[in-house]
Design a protein around this nucleic acid. Structure first.
Lengths: 144, 144
DNA sequence: GTCGCTGCAAAGTATTTGCATAGCC
DNA sequence: GGCTATGCAAATACTTTGCAGCGAC
């Protein structure tokens, strides 16, 4: 078993969850991509290795990975939700015309908002930064 | 005519759009609330002043207000989109159980991510900060 | 053997689109 | 009067839910 799988197994055992082949394959798929992906994309890729996997299972599993701290959910605001294997601080740029999403390598200062949210009574807080705009392809066309 | 309406009229004229009663009422409603609201909420409130206003029109108008810089769209990630009459820098805290959304009075440092997005080719960029967590009501129940 | 996980199917919610009419400029 | 904005209705897209059977522990 690879280190990637071990990491998930340990996390699952430690939290009283079961280790299933679906979870292993979904997790591995996301890590191999190394990049944010839609549920649909993960589902399509996983279906090749493990035919019959259902979309609700992929949804549930990716959500679980987020709870375990092995992925982060990204809400692009336009188009479907993304799950990102990167858990380090980085932002996302979303094109509001075509929906394209790109990583932005700028560590957003989220400490202040997160701290303020906790003061407002929120627990288990996670911050997210999304920049919306027009991507290089869509900007010219938008002027028309 | 009130100053609120004038501000919208000027913005509309300046951009070649028409001044309609729907736009005036929707804009005024949002400003009087002074707080983020769902399209549904705005629609319900507006329907009292101007019966027959359709939901698609409210969607279109709120989107237009965003383009004019008179409102900002907020994607809570859970539940429907919000439109916020406040255009100053502030973040939003969202409860991932009940969907409650609260303003967070912490100016998030968005300059770095926005600048990075522009460098990546994005134009007309707007940054948004969302903190997800469990609100004071839902946190106790989540432990069960 | 138990209880959680999965697959299937279906529902539900949010948002968008097409088209004919009304009304601003 | 021309052309945009609106209303209506329907469609689309995404995500969640309920339930029965399977499989991890």
């Amino acid at each position: 078993m690879q280190a990637v799988d071990e990491r998930l197994s340990d996390a699952l055992h430690g939290t009283g969850h079961r280790v299933t082949s679906q979870r292993l394959v979904i997790h591995r798929e996301l890590r191999e991509r190394g990049r944010h992906a839609t549920v649909e994309q993960v589902h399509a890729a996983v279906a090749e290795r493990l035919p019959g996997v259902s979309l609700p299972t992929v949804y549930a599993t990716l959500e679980l990975l987020e709870e375990l701290g092995l992925a982060r959910r990204v809400h692009p605001g336009r188009g479907p939700v993304l799950f990102d294997p990167r858990t380090d601080a980085h932002a996302h740029a979303v094109c509001r015309v075509c929906g394209r999403v790109e990583d932005v390598e700028a560590p957003a200062a989220l400490d202040a908002p997160v701290a303020a949210a906790r003061r407002a009574g929120f627990a288990e807080t996670r911050g997210e930064v999304v920049v919306t705009g027009l991507c290089a392809d869509c900007a010219p066309r938008a002027r028309a």
